[in-house]
Every structure is written in structure tokens, then in C-alpha cells.
Design a protein around this nucleic acid. Structure first.
Length: 838
RNA sequence: GCGAGAGUGGUGGAAUUGGUAUACACGCUAGUCUUAGGAACUAGUGCUUCGGCUUAAGGGUUCGAGUCCCUUCUCUCGCACCA
């Protein structure tokens, strides 16, 4: 019994690669530009739990691709590092007093060990960690650039506050009203914040998406998040006041149907517009809404609430008085926080008008009675004086011209994207390099004082009052103004975790540079990233933020490309099996038995359960730890199985039985190499054909990241080799080369056993002979009326006439066509013949 | 509600421009062998009333549809009063 000694082989080659720095990458100028590739993984947060099975999936994919490219003559930059600032280490520090760096360092060491145990071909000399002062020196330096450019500003606005994490959050970090990280309900809190003006780049962030080779779903998500809408600003004169009320609308053509206006409860004109009679009602309403969370406000969407302010505006097109209401279905954060309501043609306005008895005027020809329901489809304008008879587009254009001519409005663009709340009231992040001077205002820390390092603290607990633990370190906070030298205080907020990941891909290019954040020559050598692989969870977080920073750096002439990541691929999630009862509740894996193939019952009750796929979770006992499988079956098996499971981009369940199939495959390969008769002989024609076909399929599928089908072709090839008494050496050499990106350890060992010098990763990728891939004889399928009736063998590229001749002589075909009229004969070369008969 | 994607054997999944549906792997059945191991090898394995029928369901285009078009259903993900 020959179990292949994966443990020994893998350790041996990992040591070899490390000692020989096999995968060190240098900027070799002799490599032409089109042969330089930057293949990047989303770097991990080094959590205490270590790698989960999702990590090796994307990392193996890029590793295979990188190794494949190198063997095809490319110079490949393939680095790895750690997104090392983050809350778990800090929360652990609060509980135990352990410095977050201690925890993080330990976790990084564990991650490094695990990553190395998988045999990834990273250039470890380029490793970075965002919490390293050498690294965040330049994060701070880039922040200063943003600050100097006026893209960072301080404001005290109501922001999303997580009471559990005790810090402010960016809009992007709030999911359905809850903290993305911990799931706690988010509150509104008014605190002083540093904010980055990402909205200044909204248009470019939107437009440049078109230039990217990214999954359409991610592009769509970013487009929706930026949420550009084109419409008009309309100014309404107010009765009894000099002010005007500005609204934003996409349908200014429906202005004749505006029967009331709504302003958000937070709108600055609320108190002014509230009349004496309405004061009590308005105050009560404001009090009520204030206590509703954002979530409640949106949850209660179906039931509209509001209160009349007592004041009126004047409709500019017809001089009508329109009542102004206050209601929380209008958000202060979008547009101007005020709307003109056209209840006949908007569901929300209609609902509100019905509830409060406001008039509904039809201005678009409707198929329904607008008094009973809103008509939200297009229609020809009616009751709109000089717009009557026009369609939507013409009416909008005409209205905008009219508004501009009469100085009561203009064309306008609006975005859903909000500026980026950038400060966090926590300890474990990059200190924001600013000083508050009573005389000079907010001043940046001079470049020569960077990095501004984190001071030691005794307590990591956030104050919870909106200040970071750094306020408790007077010797750090109290400083001198870099401009005037007067006593000043340091900014105590820190940067969010996203800051470090906004530019890490640049630092890999020049990780040890002490004088600048990146050498421009090296930057030009590698950028942009040619392939970026990672999970979909960063679709509008990291991937939007880093595009923003990159564009700022581009404007400053510090990088040469407009976009950082040319091609993005999202790996699918690796799920697991779980078992579901009739009532849809899930049963942990260890409480289920398989009573017949594919039939499962809950062991205790005997109740039948069905196998479903579900996320891995501790409670379902279906979490897979890659370390266990590496230990018991080897890294090559883990790598190959994760690629064999299915298409990279699909989510798919881990099946340990399926994993064993891949392990058995490698074991079989090992036995062929070590036990069979291997001779340096020529290949017979059929074997040569299969070998060439295999080279072709594996090459093409690796190129296009269809790793699962490349692996099945290797299996087909190995199954054939396994049948041979004497195996030609050549076939095993080719097999080792083809396998080497996928299962590099066993491939290195095979290469050595076949008498070659290491490393196989330095060898040239094999090429196939197209002529040898062709079959001399092909099977032609004979269909009668589209149904498969017979098959005949014909020479490859046989003449159409000869094929038809052979088909007519085919006995089975004759049985089906006898006594019938042949209407049509279709011949697909080398594939099939379809005879249409009557 | 809006947007994006997906439905193929008992299971994970294959199928160039529309051209043999179910490659490869798992599981299962039977046998051989044994250093009893999540071993190896051999044969079989979509359903079938043996006529045929099968790619979520129904319809359409076509000589021919898993693939293209329409309708419906189910699932996953994202956004959600965005004026």
C-alpha cells in the first residue's frame, strides 16, 4: 500500500522555495511591458480563528494563474500582506489588556504559517502589514495630501453611531440599519468627524466603471450606490417670507400637478415656516420622529406620517398656493431635503395625500382614476397648459427652459453617494496626522515627523462619548503647533480600517522605500493590477474607497493609471451542507444520519430531513478547517479540491467525500510515478493525441480561470496512463508540468523523480500540436427529423457528398427513411447529419 | 418594491458559433484482491410500462434548443420612502 508521502514532499519543497527565494520578483527591464503582470489577492484581516476555507479558494486561483503566467514567460508580481488594524484585536485588548499589536502579530504569524503551508508562490520579501509604522507612515502621508487638497474636512453632523463598537460608521458600513461588523442597531449621533469628500469624485467614479473588466454585478452595485440622477432644481417662493424653498425633482414636467410640498423634519426652514397655530403639533411631531431610528423610519414606510406647517409656497408655473408639510418620508440627506409632491403620479405622495386629504391632480394621461390609485407610468401631459400633449422627454426639456428663463429653477444632478465619514473613535488605527492650534486652526503634522505613531495607553476602552482612548494620553495629545509653536492638541480620532487597504497594492510594488510612498518608475512597471481576486463583500466598501484614493493620487501625478484594478473576479463563497426539517429549521450535521443514499433523518426523532446548502456556522457544526485537511491529506489536495469543486465565481458546498476523490487522484498519480514501469519510449498515436488534447484543454482553461474543467482533463489523462503497462516518460513530464500550477509540491517531486533539476516552476509551459489533436476518424451522428437514429464513422473533414452517401447506405438510417420523402438534408461537418422526411 | 444572478442525475458539476445532454468526480450495486485502508482493480449506474421520455413549468423561433425569445414559478445576493 503506497500512500503518497504528501507531508514529507510538501515540507521539503516549501523549504526549498523559501531558501532559494524561488518566487522573488524583480523589475526586470528586459521583460517587455505586455509580459508584466500584477496578480493580486485581497489581503486578509489576520483574525484569531486563522484561515477559513474561503481564503485558499481565491488564493489558489491567483497562485495557479501566476505560476501559469511565469511558465509562459511573464514577469509576475504576486504579493501578500495583512490588513492588520481592526476591531477584534482591540476588543480583545479591552477585555484582557493585551496590546492589540501583540495579538495581531501572533495572528499574522499564524496566518503566514498557514499560507506558506499551502505552497503559494508569493514574493514574501514584499510582505506588508498596515499596522506597521513603516507602512502607515505613508497612509498618513496620503491623508495629508487629501487634507492639503481640501478633500478632508471636519464637520459636526449627525452620523451613524454603533453603540456596541462605540464608534462612528460610514454609510457604506451600515447594512439595513445595523452595524455591518457586529449587527447592532445603528443610532444617529451628532459628533465632530473627519469626512472625506468622495462626492467630488462621484462622476468620475461612475464614468470610469465603464473602462473596467469587472463583474457586471459589482459595477451595478457601485453605480447604484453612487446613484446619479438627473433632474431639476425648482425654487418655490414662500407666502409671507422672502426666502425661497428649493426642491430637487426628476420630474419637473409634472409641476402643474404639485399640490403640496414636504420638507424633512431636520430641514433648516422648519421653525421659520411653522405658524403659531401649528406650533404645538409640529413640535410634537419633531419629538416623535427624533426618537425613531433610521430603521424604524424606513420600516414604517407603509404608514406615512406628517404634520402641516401652516405655511404656503407659490407654484411658479401657475401661482397656486401650495401647503407645506413636514414629514419624515422625506430625507434630509438626499437632494435639498424638500420635495414638491405630485400625488397623482407618485405612490408615496399619493398615499400621503389620501391620508391627509390633500388634492390629487392628474397631469399625465392615465389608464386609471388617479383618485383611486397613483399612475406612475408614462403618459401624455394633460391639465398642464403649455405642456399639454407633450411626451415626458419633451415636457421635461421645455419645463427646464421655462424655469431657467424665469429664474426659478435649473437643470440639476443629484447623487445618493454621501461623503465618507473617515474618523473612528478607537485606538487601534492610524492616528490622523493633524494638530489643532488655537491660533492657526487645524494644521498638518510635518512630513519629517511622520510616522506619527500610536502612544501606549493603559486603557483601550473607547470613552463612548465620541472620543477615542487617545484623549487620555496627555503627553501625546499636548503638543506644539508646527506653524507657530504655541501649545496645541493632537487630533485623537483614528482612521478607519479601510485607510490601509486603500493603497496597499501600491506599497507591494516598493515596500521598503523609506523616502517615498512608491518609486514612480516601479509604479509604471507594474500598475495597474491585471487581475484582482476576492470576495464580493467589498463591492462598495474597499473597492470604492480605493478607487477614490487612487484617483486623488492620479490627480496629484503620483500614480500613472486612472484606475487601480483593471480586472476583478469575485470568487464564490464556499458553503457547507446542512439539513432542513419540513418546518424549514436547520439541524446540526452531527444530529443527522443517512439511512439510504441521499436520504437523511434526524437521528433522535427519525424525522426526515433534506440536504441543503448553508453557510458554515459553529451552530450547524459544518465548519471546515483547512488546517485539518492540509495535515491529513496535504496542501495539494486542498488546493486542487477547492479548484475542482466548481466554477471559481460560483458559490458551492464543501463535500468531504468529493475531496477524497481529489486526494485519490493525487495518490494514483503518485503510484504511477513511483510504481509503474516508466520508459523513455515514443507514444502511440492515440496516446499522443490525448496528451496534446490535454495540453490544449489545460492551457486554455487555466488561461480563462476555468480550473475545474482543466482538472477533469488531467483526470482523463491520468486514467488513461493508469491503464498502461509501460508509461512513456514524456507523458509524465508533461503531466508534471500541467499539474505544477495546481499541485506544485507533488509536481516538483515528480519532476525530480523523472531526473530533472528544480524548480519545475522555472520550466516552460508545454505547447500542443494542433494537428495531433485532430481525430482521423470522426463519429457522425445521424438524426431523422432531429431525433438521434444512427451513428457512422467518417474520415475527418470528409466531403459532404461522401458523408451523405455513407448515410444513405447506413442500414439503420434506411429503416427510418424507407418509403418517406426526403425534404431536406443538413450536414454539419464532422458532427452530424439531419435528414428531414415526410 | 427595485436591481443583479441562478435553476441540468441521488450529490458537486460538464456541454465552442444553437449541432451526440449528463464529461470529470462523489455516492451506490456486483465482483476480484488484500499489508483491513476513508485502499486498489474490473464491470455497471438519468428515468422507463422498452414504444419512448428527460436540462424548474408552460409556450414560441428553428431541420435542430440546456443554450435564443415570451410567460410563470422557485432560490441566492445587493439596495430599499433616493423625490
Amino acid at each position: 500500500m503506497s500512500k503518497y508521502p504528501f507531508n514529507e514532499i510538501e515540507k521539503k519543497w516549501q523549504k526549498y522555495w523559501e531558501e532559494n527565494k524561488t518566487f522573488r520578483t524583480i523589475e526586470d527591464e528586459s521583460v517587455p511591458e505586455e509580459k508584466r503582470k500584477y496578480v493580486l489577492d485581497m489581503f486578509p484581516y489576520p483574525s484569531g480563528a486563522g484561515l477559513h476555507v474561503g481564503h485558499p479558494e481565491g488564493y489558489t486561483a491567483t497562485d495557479i494563474y501566476s505560476r501559469y503566467l511565469r511558465m509562459n514567460g511573464y514577469n509576475v508580481l504576486h504579493p501578500m500582506g495583512f490588513d492588520a488594524f481592526g476591531l477584534p484585536a482591540e476588543n480583545y485588548a479591552i477585555k484582557t489588556g493585551t496590546h492589540p499589536y501583540t495579538t495581531t502579530k501572533k495572528n499574522m504569524e499564524n496566518f503566514t504559517r498557514q499560507l506558506k503551508s499551502l505552497g503559494f508562490s508569493y514574493d514574501w520579501d514584499r510582505e506588508i502589514a498596515t499596522c506597521d509604522p513603516e507602512y502607515y507612515h505613508w497612509t498618513q502621508w496620503i491623508f495629508k495630501k487629501l487634507f492639503e487638497k481640501g478633500l478632508a474636512y471636519e464637520a459636526s453632523t449627525p452620523i451613524n453611531w454603533c453603540p456596541s463598537c462605540k464608534t462612528g460608521l460610514a454609510n457604506e458600513e451600515v447594512k439595513e440599519g445595523h452595524c455591518e461588523r457586529c449587527g447592532t442597531k445603528v443610532e444617529k449621533k451628532n459628533i465632530r468627524q473627519w469626512i472625506l469628500k468622495i462626492t467630488a469624485y462621484a462622476d468620475r467614479l461612475l464614468e470610469d466603471l465603464d473602462t473596467l473588466d469587472w463583474p457586471e454585478s459589482v459595477k451595478t452595485m457601485q453605480r447604484n450606490w453612487i446613484g446619479k440622477s438627473e433632474g431639476a432644481a425648482v425654487f418655490f417662493k414662500l407666502e409671507n417670507f422672502d426666502d425661497t424653498l428649493e426642491v430637487y425633482t426628476t420630474r419637473c414636467d409634472t409641476l402643474f400637478g404639485a399640490t403640496y410640498m414636504v420638507i424633512a423634519p431636520e430641514h433648516p426652514l422648519v421653525s421659520k415656516l411653522t405658524t403659531e397655530e401649528q406650533k404645538a403639533a409640529v413640535e410634537k411631531y419633531l419629538e416623535d420622529t427624533k426618537h425613531k431610528s433610521d430603521l424604524e423610519r424606513t420600516d414604517l414606510a407603509k404608514d406615512k406620517t406628517g404634520v402641516f406647517s401652516g405655511s404656503y409656497a407659490i407654484n411658479p408655473v401657475n401661482g397656486e398656493r401650495i401647503p407645506i408639510w413636514i414629514a419624515d418620508y422625506v430625507l434630509i440627506s438626499y437632494g435639498t431635503g424638500a420635495i414638491m409632491a405630485v400625488p397623482a403620479h407618485d405612490d408615496r405622495d399619493w398615499e400621503f395625500a389620501k391620508k391627509f386629504g390633500l388634492p390629487i391632480i392628474e397631469v399625465l394621461k392615465s389608464d386609471v382614476d388617479v383618485q383611486t390609485q397613483a399612475w406612475t407610468e408614462d403618459g401624455i401631459h394633460v391639465n398642464s397648459q403649455w405642456l399639454d400633449g407633450l411626451n415626458k422627454e419633451d415636457a421635461i426639456n421645455k419645463m427646464i427652459s421655462w424655469l431657467e428663463e424665469h429664474k426659478c429653477g435649473h437643470k440639476a444632478v443629484n447623487y445618493k453617494l454621501r461623503d465618507w465619514i473617515f474618523s473612528r473613535q478607537r485606538y487601534w488605527g492610524e492616528p490622523i496626522p493633524l494638530v489643532h492650534c488655537p491660533k492657526c486652526g487645524t494644521v498638518a503634522v510635518p512630513d519629517e515627523e511622520l510616522p506619527l505613531t500610536l502612544p501606549e495607553v493603559t486603557k483601550y476602552e473607547p470613552s463612548g462619548t465620541g472620543e477615542s482612548p487617545l484623549v487620555n494620553v496627555p503627553e501625546w495629545v499636548d503638543t506644539k503647533c508646527p506653524v507657530c509653536g504655541a501649545a496645541a492638541k493632537r487630533e485623537t480620532n483614528t482612521m478607519p480600517q479601510w485607510a490601509g487597504s486603500c493603497w496597499y497594492y501600491l506599497r507591494y510594488i516598493d515596500p521598503k522605500n523609506k523616502d517615498r510612498f512608491i518609486d514612480p518608475e516601479k509604479e509604471k512597471y507594474w500598475m495597474p493590477v491585471d487581475l484582482y481576486v476576492g470576495g464580493t463583500e467589498h463591492a462598495v466598501l474597499h473597492l470604492l474607497y480605493s478607487r477614490f484614493w487612487h484617483k486623488v493620487l492620479y490627480d496629484l501625478g503620483l500614480v500613472s493609471t486612472k484606475e487601480p484594478f483593471q480586472r476583478l473576479v469575485n470568487q464564490g463563497m464556499i458553503t457547507s451542507f446542512a439539513y432542513q426539517k419540513k418546518n424549514k429549521s436547520l439541524v446540526p450535521v452531527d444530529k443527522v444520519s443517512e439511512v439510504a443514499p441521499g436520504k437523511f433523518v434526524e437521528t433522535e426523532t427519525g424525522e426526515e430531513v433534506t440536504q441543503v446548502t448553508a453557510k458554515m456556522s459553529k451552530s450547524l457544526k459544518n465548519v471546515i478547517n483547512p488546517d485539518d485537511f492540509i495535515r491529513d491529506y496535504g496542501a495539494d489536495s486542498v488546493r486542487m479540491y477547492e479548484m475542482f469543486m466548481g466554477p471559481l465565481t460560483e458559490s458551492k458546498p464543501w463535500a468531504t467525500a468529493g475531496f477524497m476523490g481529489v486526494y485519490r487522484f493525487l495518490d494514483r498519480v503518485w503510484r504511477i510515478v513511483t510504481e509503474k514501469n516508466i520508459e523513455d519510449i515514443g507514444l502511440d498515436k492515440e496516446l499522443d493525441k490525448l496528451m496534446n488534447k490535454t495540453i490544449k484543454k489545460v492551457s486554455q482553461d487555466t488561461e480563462t480561470l476555468n480550473f475545474n474543467t482543466a482538472i477533469s482533463q488531467m483526470m482523463v489523462f491520468v486514467n488513461e496512463l493508469n491503464r498502461l503497462e509501460i508509461v512513456p516518460k514524456k507523458t509524465l513530464e508533461i503531466l508534471a508540468l500541467l499539474m505544477s500550477p495546481y499541485t506544485p509540491h507533488i509536481a516538483e517531486e515528480m519532476w525530480a523523480l523523472l531526473g530533472h533539476e528544480p524548480s519545475i516552476s522555472k520550466e516552460t509551459w508545454p505547447v500542443w500540436d494542433e494537428k495531433k489533436c485532430l481525430d482521423d476518424e470522426v463519429e457522425i451522428v445521424v438524426q431523422i427529423n432531429g431525433k438521434l437514429r444512427s451513428r457512422i464513422m467518417m474520415p475527418h473533414n470528409a466531403d459532404k457528398k461522401d458523408v451523405l452517401e455513407a448515410v444513405r447506405n447506413d442500414e439503420k438510417t434506411r429503416q427510418w427513411t424507407e418509403g418517406k420523402t426526403i425534404v431536406k438534408e443538413i450536414v454539419v461537418p464532422n458532427k452530424l447529419v439531419n435528414i428531414v422526411v415526410k
